[in-house]
Design a protein around this nucleic acid. Structure first.
Length: 680
DNA sequence: GCAAGGTC
């Protein structure tokens, strides 16, 4: 009797085998795929790990080429599943021949249920093989043992719900992506993508930019007085900001010759400041973004640190350490790291009292260190991110900071002013976590009725500021708030917007193309540009899970809506083509051609798909320049100081944006190259 | 060559 146990990934397979076998499993291989074997409760178990989804939906071959004519048919075409990890599927098929029983032990969520169902479908089991489900939400001894002692059935509805999402996402994504790309002639590497998550995310960026553009700064006035008792400090008029100059001037006139301020009230109190909560993925990415590291880069580094056994699994929603997490052992482990001193201090506390975040889930623990590393062992961003994770962990266990907050109100010539002070008495967790700034603001101790010297009176004119552009961290937080994407996909989606040339900059701004795409979608296929579509899909999936709806119903309802949207898009396809092409033209425009001085230099593609810069006066002007084949090309305003020719900025993945002269033979480029080589 | 979701 052999029980085949299916896990979501190799790591989980190892944990399950280790726990059930109490560490004494045999590691065997089928086609180089590890299969972990051991006896358990009278049966022989064989545990195998998947690699997430091992099947993917795609359209039949007759829809391989993209054209506008068959899009209406594509809407109603069922996609078919094809394997993504061939060797693993072959191994699974071989293992299936041994199976008397199958236990699906993937993550306990929709996608996990589907991953299990996919594996079962691949195995082509005979009907007398029992298929069961072990349901656990953490890879810990008690959870796993409990799950295998209380086996349940595979929940097909749950798997079907996830599968329905796949079908709907592919249909909308493929049909609208193909429409946008073919209607505008943007084929090949420059295609224009549309999707349930990426398009509403892009719309967030576009909407923010519009808010910034229509923003009109509003002037305001504040009245400040400079006071002195031992040292200088200041107070503000209690009215706060004045939106009119008149009343502000009136106050200023009243107090301008004042010599003393009378203390009406003085309050000083000591306050504890709790440390920040444990890291989930979103919080981690928010912090990383402030360090100037992109979200996708940070996740790649975190993945590496995870597989190297230095930090825990980086994809989690959880902000509360489970009670089973061995905090003390982790601190002891960190004694071997570059943070030995800090770890020792934290360990020396009588009791460990970790902070808790707002979200508690059971998928994975918050991101925390699991192994020790030193600065010599890790380089660059690897070290910076490891350090961040360690310091965050230490901070969540560190003592509160103690601050003295002071507040006072003053009477000056019948006008009321107020002042605040902030003094750190005990650094507490701040000393472990230097990423959050906390500046002291001086204010002396005062007594009610006391008089202090007025040494100056100032009226200050200010202007309201427009809303800020999103950083990657803030955008990812906003996506989470709106239910867009998951902990594992949000950073990829943001990266995708850059890769498609829809957005640019550290402070994220839409490109012309990005704006035009959103405009076209909002005018013609509104649904896909709003987060509501995700909400609707979530509701439909819940109904499928409850057995209230069938997959076919949800898919055909979705097809109806997609068909309608496509119809509208097709009737406006000429307008859309023109708008997008105009936007692209503007975006690909580098500069006036320095050779013929008549045409414009624009980014073009050769017949073989290589991009280069050519002149719009071609064939009269044959001026061309080669371009790097990777990264986004952005024109730069200033001409090169050396050759006076146009410059470009190249923004490539995993590299710092690079300013270069369009003319490769210009000496300025050589200089840059050399100085880079010297740095290495 | 499309999406989004798992995972590496």
């Amino acid at each position: 009797m052999v029980s085949v146990i299916i896990c979501e990934k190799n790591n989980a397979a190892q944990r399950v085998a280790a726990i059930l076998s109490k560490g004494s499993y045999r590691k065997t291989f089928i086609n180089k795929v590890p299969v972990l074997r051991f006896p358990w409760n009278g049966t022989e178990c064989a545990v195998i790990g998947m690699r997430g989804h091992i099947l993917n939906f795609d359209y039949p071959d007759e829809f391989k080429s993209w054209n506008l004519d068959d899009l209406e048919e594509l809407v109603r075409t069922s996609p078919i599943k094809s394997p993504t990890a061939g060797w693993l599927i072959n191994a699974l098929k071989k293992l299936a021949k041994e199976a008397d029983e199958v236990i699906v032990a993937t993550d306990f969520d929709r996608e996990g249920e589907l991953i299990g169902a996919e594996a079962v479908s691949i195995m082509e089991l005979s009907p007398d093989v029992k298929i069961q489900r072990a349901r656990f939400s953490a890879l810990t001894g008690p959870e796993i043992r409990n799950a295998f002692d209380n086996i349940i059935d595979l929940n097909i509805n749950l798997a079907t719900a996830a599968e329905t999402r796949q079908i709907v996402d592919l249909a909308w994504g493929a049909v609208l992506t193909r429409f946008m790309s073919t209607a505008t002639g943007m084929m090949g590497a420059d295609f224009l993508s549309v999707g349930r998550v990426q398009s509403p995310t892009l719309a967030l960026v576009v909407d923010r930019e519009k808010d910034i553009e229509v923003f009109e700064p509003k002037p305001f006035w504040e009245i400040l007085v400079d006071l002195e008792k031992g040292r200088h400090f200041f107070a503000k008029h209690v009215h706060g900001v004045f939106w009119e100059k008149g009343p502000a001037d009136k106050v200023l006139e009243t107090v301008k010759d004042a010599k003393t301020a009378n203390v009406l009230e003085y309050i000083a109190e000591e306050k504890n400041e709790r440390p920040p909560s444990p890291f989930n993925t979103t919080q981690f990415l928010a912090e990383v973004s402030r360090m100037g590291i992109s979200a996708s880069r940070a996740m790649a580094v975190a993945e590496r640190l995870y597989t190297d056994g230095l930090i825990s699994y980086p994809r989690t929603d959880n902000m509360v350490y489970p009670s089973t997490l061995p905090l003390k052992n982790i601190l002891k482990e960190l004694m071997k790291s570059g943070f030995a001193k800090e770890a020792e201090e934290i360990l020396a506390q009588e009791k460990l009292r970790p902070t808790r975040g707002k979200k508690q889930t059971t998928d994975h623990p918050p991101i925390h260190p699991v192994g020790a590393a030193t600065k010599e062992r890790l380089t660059g961003d690897n070290w910076r991110i490891y350090e961040l994770v360690v310091r965050r962990f230490l901070a969540t266990l560190a003592p509160d900071a103690l601050v003295l907050r002071k507040e006072a109100r003053f009477d000056i010539e019948g006008e009321e002013f107020q002042s605040h002070g902030h003094e750190t008495l005990d650094e507490g967790w701040y000393s472990y976590y230097p990423y959050i700034k906390h500046n002291d603001v001086f204010m002396p101790e005062l007594k009610k009725g006391e008089e202090v010297n007025v040494v100056g009176v100032r009226g200050r004119e200010g202007k309201t500021e427009p809303p800020r552009r999103f950083t990657q961290g803030v955008l990812i937080r906003e996506m989470e708030r709106l239910g867009l994407g998951t902990k594992s996909t949000r950073h990829e989606i943001v990266q995708k917007l850059y890769d498609r040339g829809y957005v640019e900059g550290t402070n994220i701004a839409p490109t012309n193309t990005g704006r035009t795409i959103i405009q076209a979608l909002e005018d013609n296929a509104d649904m896909i540009s709003k987060p509501d579509m995700t909400k609707q899909l979530e509701d439909d999936m819940t109904e499928i899970e409850n057995g209230k709806k069938k997959q076919d119903e949800v898919v055909s309802e979705s097809q109806e809506m997609l068909a309608k949207s496509l119809g509208v898009l097709l009737t406006h396809k000429d307008d859309i083509r023109k708008e997008v092409q105009d936007a692209l033209k503007e975006q690909s425009q580098i500069a006036r051609c320095p050779k013929c001085k008549e045409g414009d230099l624009v980014i073009r593609r050769s017949k073989r798909g290589k991009r280069f810069v050519g002149c719009t006066s071609y064939p009269d002007c044959t001026n061309t320049y080669p371009l790097p084949q990777f990264g986004t090309i952005v024109p730069h305003e200033d001409d090169c100081k050396t050759c006076k020719g146009p410059q470009i900025k190249v923004i490539a993945k995993r590299r710092r944006p690079e300013l270069m002269c369009l003319d490769m033979s210009c000496k300025a480029n050589e200089k840059r190259k050399n100085s880079r080589a010297n740095k290495k």
